[in-house]
């Protein structure tokens, strides 16, 4: 059955431009968003969002976009600057290869959140799925930060090359109470993961190790977790007053000895 597609309805509410996404195809919705941003609008409120993909994809602006509903795949992928606040859940790939900007999610996130992100921040209040933060990187002053209020699934921070991931584990899943899944940080060669729990070293993937938190780590956590708590109305002292485990790479060159030429000199 063909679902009749609608045109996005645009109205104004105070300083916000409101876009009704009900029944609107993502391509049309994103065209409307892009046009509004190009016209100079800086505050957008998208209502009735129901899984539309690619919102704020590749967007370069310092605008503020509110999403009411469920944001579809690749939210703010390749984005360069916008702040996206989701009052609901996000689907796969939120913040995929993002360069700058902020994503704040009041609900849960599914898989590959923050995949390959190079800069900016993602705060997810609830749980996230598999393969989150894979190949996160950093570059000069750009150090991406991903904070998760709940727990993360398998392959968290795999191949991580930079940036910081914090998992708070404030709520746990009944079916899997661990703070993060299997193959944690496999192949990590840059960056760090902070888990608000004790994590046995033998649960880590190849190339990862546990390290003691330093004063700087504490300061970093105070700042980022503090911000997370103020956004989601949590008590920072309570959240921070806990044991954190820091996971880092054993080496920045995990494959250095793999090839015969390297050994020859």
């Amino acid at each position: 059955m063909e679902i009749p597609l609608r045109k996005a309805k645009v109205s104004r509410e105070g300083e916000f431009v409101v876009v009704d996404a009900k029944g609107v195809h993502y391509r049309e919705l994103n065209e409307v968003i892009n046009e509004l941003v190009e016209k100079g609008e800086r505050k957008l409120r998208l209502i009735n969002v129901n899984g539309q993909r690619y919102i704020a994809d590749g967007l370069r602006c310092d605008c503020y976009i509110e999403i009411h509903g469920v944001a579809g795949d690749d939210l703010a992928a390749f984005a360069n600057g916008p702040t996206v606040v989701v009052f609901g859940d996000v689907q796969d790939g939120a913040g995929n290869t993002m360069n700058a900007g902020r994503i704040i999610v009041h609900g849960h996130g599914t898989d590959i959140i923050g995949h390959s992100m190079r800069g900016g921040k993602i705060f997810v209040r609830g749980h996230v799925g598999y393969r989150v933060g894979i190949h996160m990187k950093e570059y000069r002053e750009q150090v991406p930060v991903l904070v998760i209020g709940g727990t993360a699934g398998d392959f968290l921070g795999e191949y991580m090359a930079g940036g910081r991931i914090v998992v708070l584990g404030l709520e746990r899943l009944e079916t899997y109470p661990e703070i993060a899944g299997e193959w944690l940080a496999t192949g990590i060669h840059g960056g760090a993961i902070y888990l608000r729990d004790e994590v046995d070293e033998d649960r880590l993937g190849y190339g990862a190790k546990v390290e003691k938190l330093t004063h700087d780590d504490r300061r970093f956590l105070e700042a980022e977790v503090g911000e997370f708590c103020s956004i989601f109305s949590l008590n920072p002292e309570e959240v921070l007053n806990a044991e954190f485990t820091k996971v880092v790479p054993k080496s920045h060159r995990p494959f250095a000895d793999m090839y015969s030429d390297a050994k020859e000199g």
Partner: peptide
């Protein structure tokens, strides 16, 4: 970053 291995995983993990 300068001096760190640039690793391309076998598949795209997304």
């Amino acid at each position: 970053p300068e001096g760190s291995d640039a690793i391309s995983p076998a598949p795209h993990h997304d």
